[in-house]
Design a protein around this nucleic acid. Structure first.
Lengths: 217, 217
DNA sequence: GGTCCACTTTGACCCAGATCAAGCGCGCGA
DNA sequence: TCGCGCGCTTGATCTGGGTCAAAGTGGACC
């Protein structure tokens, strides 16, 4: 929509910077252009759980709600494309296709969240790590249009601690399980972050996700 | 919308009956009228995780997808109001407000799913049980328009096993923690299912949710 | 080149919750 | 009325992952 073009603007954030604090008023919505951000919830005693991983093209914000329910943090340098909420909402009223597109994206996110509930509730630490790696590998492959054949290679966009927050584990357990997967030849590591997956099917099996890799677009 | 009225029909299911199997083609969408249904995912080795609890007014199905990603099971006798998918989708094209309303509901579900990710990933067994009880109490109170003051009374709509599936626990742990909450006076039990919460604030504290009970509409 | 600091790995030990195994109680059908 | 079965409780034991502690990277900045 050209109309959206007219009211958009860009914001940039440095790695580590908080985009929005939970509870803050949020007067814009937007989407990630480049970089990675996370959505996290925190309990009073400091326990935290990541509830969303925002990659390029993902939508941020909630039309019809004033405050953010989560902390949004840039984990890498981040560029976002933003729209002030008011005009965006008005535009949505007048342009049905925006709501329909947004509905589709939200349903995708809901599916991802439910997939993640299975991971959090029922998988072992090793399976959790394998699940996260396969999701990152898959999304990375689709974003960069690399063929999902043979060895997959990518960089982990998250620290061990962020992975732990995503998976409901401690950073020590994350580190141990990654070492174990490396020892067992499921992955190869170069430095701390650069991962090679020689056999994606093997990784899927380790994730307990067997069957094929359907499920995600 | 009167147009929706024109194409709706009702289906009933008995407690325990499966409404849709994961992977099946689903040629309708709909919403719960009375009774309770669950959305669950199952791994090949039989581990299961509930990923949604459908109470009256909740929407089932996904416009724009053919198969169901989850098992949908009636846990009580169930009445659903259904629309064949094709006409519903066509109607959605022509009637923007339906998509907007659906978007709102989906965003609410997404929030609930994210809340649940915190429960699954970071809470202790006792906190998980308290969280589930407080959610059921809250939804029950809003549905039945009882004032949320003084003692809350409700019936558990789930077996211990279903609660375990929701919470990522075993049914033994669920049973033990419910006994513990009873012993500590957080709840009173009459029979296996009838619960009285003498002090809702206390329950919220046990859930680790402190602060007030905002969050849900 | 050195030193700092944030990130990571690894080890030793412990505990919440899983697993395995009996029993209990209540509703239902014969 | 009896007994059968399903849902639930309770106990004993085991273990995956948490906790606490210490050391190993490596890159950024002087």
């Amino acid at each position: 929509m050209g109309l959206l073009e007219a009211i958009k603007y860009y914001r940039t954030f440095e790695a580590g910077q908080t985009v929005i604090w939970s509870g803050d008023k949020m007067d814009f919505v937007g989407s990630v252009v480049t970089g990675i951000a996370t959505l996290t919830q925190t309990m009073e005693d400091g326990r935290t759980q990541m509830v969303g991983l925002l990659l390029p093209s993902d939508f941020v914000g909630r039309p019809g709600r004033d405050g953010s329910a989560y902390d949004v943090v840039a984990t890498t340098d981040l560029v976002m494309c933003c729209f002030r909420k008011k005009p965006f909402e008005q535009l949505m009223e007048r342009t049905p296709h925006i709501a329909q597109r947004l509905l589709e994206m939200t349903l995708d996110e809901l599916d991802a969240a439910r997939e993640w509930m299975l991971v959090l509730g029922r998988k072992t630490a090793r399976e959790k790590i394998a699940s996260l790696l396969s999701i990152i590998a898959r999304r990375d492959a689709t974003l960069n249009l690399r063929p999902a054949e043979g060895a997959l290679v990518f960089d982990l966009p998250l620290t061990r601690e962020a992975m732990a927050d995503y998976l409901g584990l401690t950073l020590e357990t994350v580190s141990r399980q990654i070492s174990a997967l490396k020892r067992d030849g499921v992955i190869l590591l170069e430095g701390k972050r650069h991962v090679t997956v020689p056999d994606f099917t093997r990784l899927m099996e380790e994730a307990g996700d067997d069957s094929d890799g359907g499920m995600f677009a």
